[in-house]
Simulated assay, not measured.
Amino acid sequence: MIRYPFLQKGATIGVTAPSSGVPPELHGVLKAACSRMKKLGYHIVCGDTVWTQDKARSAPAIERAAEFNHMMRNDEIDFIFPPWGGELLIEVLEYIDFENMKNKWMLGYSDISLLLLAITLKTGMATAHGTNLVDLRGEFSDNRTAMWETVLSTKENESVRQSSSEHYQKEWEFDSPAPCVFNLTEKTCWKTTVNKEVNIQGRLLGGCIDTIRHLVGTSYGCVKHFKEHDIQGDPVIWFFENCELSTTDLRRSLVQMKLAGWFDDCSGIMFGRSPANTPVANYTIEEVYRDLSAELQIPIIFDIDCGHVPPQMTFINGAYAEIELSDGEGIVLQHFK
């Protein structure tokens, strides 16, 4: 059975950096995000790792893991919220104490999604793929990003509904940030490989494919065991987002996942909008999606609100979801059961 944490108003947020920390020149960004959380009624405890960054990591792997383990075991910390992602979170996995984790949410994306997926697969505890802490530093959040609180405050055996965004951000404009951080200018349109309305159901699993693909073949990525012991054979809906991969690198990663059995009993796959997806020798991202859809005989939905092209929904690893797509608009209903 999936264990669902619950976020209460006034909770204490533990900010730790199991991947990248924040360099000194950007400390103001993190301080602004922490200040915004305090205005929302939360308490903040920042670990040492969030304030340092060198050689593509916040600190040595053992130090990052020790701080994370302490916050996960600490009864005075209710919710783990890293500042952002990074590059080398995979180094900490062997030092993470999966056996003694308290039931509490962890929220993030990008490199953080590797730890999120590993936690859910290893322990059966739900984890949350969604906004970064630093992206909540604005005067307000757009309606989709702001749903993180509602989703994490959903009780066990209850459900929460999210709808696709109206607009998304084409590119960052750091010289003219919006009051909600993102500059949402482009019309959102969810698409599919099957050219019709889509309705799929199953347990959500996923993350940033650049990083979670490295769980394949390890003890931290045993999807088969998770399906047999934690979701009683329910089908899986995978959600992915691509940060930097070309179409051929993405294709190789997806084939590897297929060969490893990750897509067995899969009812559908969703892909977020991407700043990458660079075609190689005329092999386009749409063709990657169509090839995979044909091989697995399942619908693929793409350009969803997930990942490095904001805004994004909050997807819960382990939750039972009903996904509907019609006329370019998507509905995600997640059941905490």
Rank of each mutant, 00 (worst) to 15 (best):
W190D: 05
T284F: 10
T154L: 01
E99S: 14
K191S: 13
N242Q: 05
V151T: 05
N195Y: 09
V45D: 00
T211D: 10
D78R: 00
K337A: 07
S293M: 08
W84D: 08
G47R: 06
L296E: 08
E244W: 03
M72E: 04
R252G: 04
T12F: 00
E241H: 15
N199F: 05
D230Y: 14
H335D: 09
Q312M: 15
C189D: 03
D175H: 12
D291W: 07
K31H: 10
N69L: 07
C243V: 04
S110K: 00
T193A: 07
I90N: 06
H167D: 09
D97F: 05
N132F: 14
S219L: 11
L40N: 12
C243F: 06
F271S: 02
N132S: 14
D142F: 03
A61D: 11
M147G: 00
L121W: 11
E295L: 12
N242C: 14
V198T: 11
F68E: 04
L121I: 11
T185C: 10
N242H: 01
I300L: 15
E63M: 12
H129M: 04
K9P: 09
D75S: 14
F263H: 08
R213K: 15
M106G: 00
P279L: 09
E186N: 04
E173T: 14
F174E: 13
L204E: 01
A65Q: 05
G47E: 02
L116I: 07
T247K: 07
L40V: 01
V236C: 07
D249F: 05
T150W: 01
Q312I: 02
L205S: 02
W238S: 03
D305N: 14
D111M: 01
V15T: 07
F226Y: 15
V288C: 14
N103L: 15
E156T: 14
S293C: 12
P24N: 10
H229W: 02
S293N: 10
I304F: 03
F174R: 08
H229M: 11
T154S: 03
N100K: 11
H214I: 06
E295P: 01
R252Q: 14
L296R: 04
I237A: 05
G307N: 06
L325W: 02
P177A: 04
G318S: 06
R213P: 04
P279I: 09
R203I: 15
Q162T: 04
A294G: 01
S110H: 03
K227F: 03
P5H: 01
M257Q: 12
L40K: 14
N277F: 04
G108I: 11
A294S: 13
D97R: 08
K39Q: 15
T248C: 12
F79R: 10
E171V: 12
F240D: 10
R36A: 15
D265L: 13
I269F: 02
D78M: 01
C180F: 07
F315E: 05
A33R: 10
C46R: 07
Y42K: 01
R213G: 10
G268R: 00
V236W: 05
Y220K: 11
V332Q: 02
G328S: 10
V134S: 02
F182D: 12
Y42W: 06
R290A: 12
R144V: 15
R137Y: 03
P311W: 03
L205G: 00
E286Q: 13
